[in-house]
Simulated scan of single mutants.
Amino acid sequence: MSVLDQIYEKAKADPQKVAFPEAENEKMMQAAYECGQEGYIIPVLVGDEETIKKLAAERGYDINVFKVVDIHEESYKNSVIERYVALEDTKLKEKALGRRMEDPLYYAMAMQKIGDADVTFAGIDNTTGDVLLAGQMIIGLKPGISTISSIGLCDIPGFEGSEGSLLAVGDSAVCTNPNPEQLASIAISACDTVHDLLGWEPRCAMISYSTLGSGQGELIDKVKEALAIAQEQRPDLAIDGEFQLDAAIVPAVAAKKVQRESKVAGKANVLIWPDLNVGNTSVKLIQQFGHADAYGPMLQGFNSVVCDCSRGAPVSEIKGNVVISAVRAAGAKKK
């Protein structure tokens, strides 16, 4: 059974409420419908109810598969605002939130913040910047996390790692040149993400061109400082480094290069790149030469799951990312 098959099974066992603020978009509505009809999620379409129902009928969808939230209906909107502003960790007051909720993206995230949705899924009609800004303003960041980042899951044929052919990597898409505090946040978030999604006990390696002082320079110093911050903030997590790639994932190399006890060296299941140059290039190398399937990027660092999909993604890819996001949300609830 492939990793996606396992994730789909988890989703069906515990469907989550996924809010779609780009409900009128044809690809987004199709993905929401198919995921809902197949029992993986409870799709919540957020927007103008009349338009949504008209488009659903034109496209041949059973409207009963969806829950439709009309952003123009005042009683429910007022209820969302009232419950939102009553929370302790929110930034917006009643009037400011009401104005922003004229945008379905902010409306969906307000629903998520109060628990009426588990995930907000967007990214076709809204830019990545739109989604990140709304998420930071409405959902907020997890305590101790200083930056939004991403993680991807690579399924690499022929790779025999500690989790078989699977390897989680980040950040390969969002945070361009993280400082030590941000890099530590990425590592911590990545550990939480793989635990929520896959149930792994994360073994997280901070990647560098140096293994435990074999090289010197400010690029290595950044990784070392990030490691110290991450270990201090989350001593419960197995985060170690700095390691070269082979020392992180190959037991024989780790035995030669890492002359101390390590829960991570040689058996890492999460790799943290030092910057986006390394991350973006590495993922493309894995895809092109390792013929790997790469799932993601999955946004991480928010208080709850927010997903920004690629504008050019086909419906099949959107469905996969919807289901992954739902399983992450279910996993986070169980912790």
Rank of each mutant, 00 (worst) to 15 (best):
D62W: 10
D62Q: 11
N64G: 10
N64M: 11
V65S: 05
V65L: 09
F66C: 10
V69C: 05
D70Y: 12
I71K: 13
I71H: 08
E73G: 05
E74N: 12
Y76K: 10
K77F: 01
N78R: 11
N78S: 14
V80H: 11
I81F: 02
E82C: 02
E82M: 11
Y84M: 10
Y84Q: 04
Y84H: 02
Y84S: 02
Y84I: 05
V85L: 03
A86L: 10
A86Y: 00
A86C: 02
A86K: 13
L87P: 01
L87K: 15
L87C: 08
L87G: 05
D89E: 03
T90E: 04
T90I: 15
T90R: 14
K91L: 06
L92C: 11
L92G: 05
L92F: 15
K95I: 04
K95T: 09
K95Y: 02
A96P: 01
A96L: 06
A96C: 00
L97C: 01
L97M: 01
G98D: 15
R99D: 08
R99S: 11
R99N: 04
R99K: 13
R100W: 12
E102I: 00
D103T: 08
D103G: 11
D103C: 09
P104Q: 14
P104H: 11
L105Y: 02
L105E: 04
Y107I: 07
A110N: 03
A110M: 00
M111Q: 03
M111E: 12
M111F: 07
Q112N: 03
Q112L: 05
Q112C: 06
K113V: 07
I114A: 04
G115K: 13
A117N: 01
V119L: 05
T120H: 05
F121C: 00
F121G: 00
A122M: 09
A122T: 13
G123S: 07
G123V: 12
G123C: 08
I124H: 09
I124N: 14
N126K: 14
T127P: 01
G129N: 03
